[in-house]
């Protein structure tokens, strides 16, 4: 047996598993999306793209995902910078605190937000007490509720993505900029920010895709009336039982994800090599 045969044998179970239980299901979904009573059809796509309701769902998905991504980047960049520059003990603690919510089930975290944002929840109460909101003010089942919940869910991905790039930035570059007369803020803007762009871009692409494809948090915090694409897919599968239509919507999501993910893989792949 050659070394090559041994390597092949070692990868074989994985290749079989991914081939049969990963690629084939995706292919099945693609096939089902064009399935009609009289052979292949694009009717399911036409139905989605021709209906103002579904176009509204699509637009809301893209809009919310963009807002969520921008907020995550705006919080994630300074957070990652601070994490990269504090002492090792504090950094370890911060990393653990960022990872803890990341590793907690999404249903559990969303439940926490339901309590906080609910009708008599802490956050509407505080806003009312401060006089910032009227008596009938509600945040649950609105788009801002989805944004708040999703930012919390996805911020760890953004932060860790930027942190990975930032820890590799040579700190002497910053010192050089400072000795040559840059202020702290100028250094941040002209040295740190440009050098962490790969991390910010990779994190943003990841957050955008995850945000566009999630339905548990949007469903529970946005309620049944504010639908996003993934929630609409879930409804087509479980409630209206229109599977070809669900598959077509999934293909639309898949196409969007591919457009975003190809630069992501290229970016992160280069970073590892």
């Amino acid at each position: 047996m050659s070394d090559r045969t041994e390597s092949l044998l070692l990868t074989l179970p994985g290749l079989l598993l991914l081939g049969l239980a990963f690629l084939v299901p995706i292919a099945q979904m693609l096939v089902l999306s064009i399935e009609g009573e009289n052979g292949p059809t694009l009717a399911h796509f036409a139905r989605f793209l021709g209906d103002p309701f579904y176009l509204g769902v699509l637009w809301r998905t893209v809009r919310l995902s963009l807002i969520i991504t921008v907020i995550c980047a705006a919080i994630g960049f300074p957070l990652a910078y601070i994490m990269a520059r504090v002492g090792p003990r504090l950094r370890l603690w911060l990393i653990v605190l960022v990872i803890l919510p990341l590793m907690t089930s999404v249903v559990v975290r969303t439940f926490g937000w339901m309590v906080l944002l609910g009708r008599s929840g802490l956050i509407p109460d505080i806003l009312r007490d401060l006089g910032l909101a009227g008596r009938s003010f509600a945040i649950m089942h609105t788009e801002p509720a989805i944004v708040i919940g999703m930012v919390q869910v996805l911020l760890p991905f953004m932060t860790l993505s930027i942190l990975g790039v930032m820890t590799r930035i040579d700190q002497r570059l910053e010192e050089a900029a400072r000795t040559m007369g840059c202020s702290f803020v100028q250094t941040l803007r002209s040295v740190v920010l440009p050098l962490s762009v790969p991390g910010i871009v990779a994190g943003s692409l990841l957050v955008f895709t995850l945000s566009a494809s999630s339905f548990i948090t949007p469903n529970l915090l946005g309620g049944p009336r504010i639908q996003v694409l993934a929630a609409s897919i879930y409804r087509s599968v479980t409630q209206t039982l229109d599977w070809p239509f669900a598959a077509a919507q999934a293909v639309i999501l898949f196409a969007g994800v591919l457009v975003v993910m190809i630069p992501y893989v290229a970016l992160t792949g280069r970073g590892n090599g």
């Binding site: 084939v24 995706i26 999501l253």
Partner: peptide, 18 residues
Amino acid sequence: LSPLVLPTIIYAIGMLML
């Protein structure tokens, strides 16, 4: 590593249908 970047919902639909 690709199952990591493919949104789970897309994969879940494929599995269910298959």
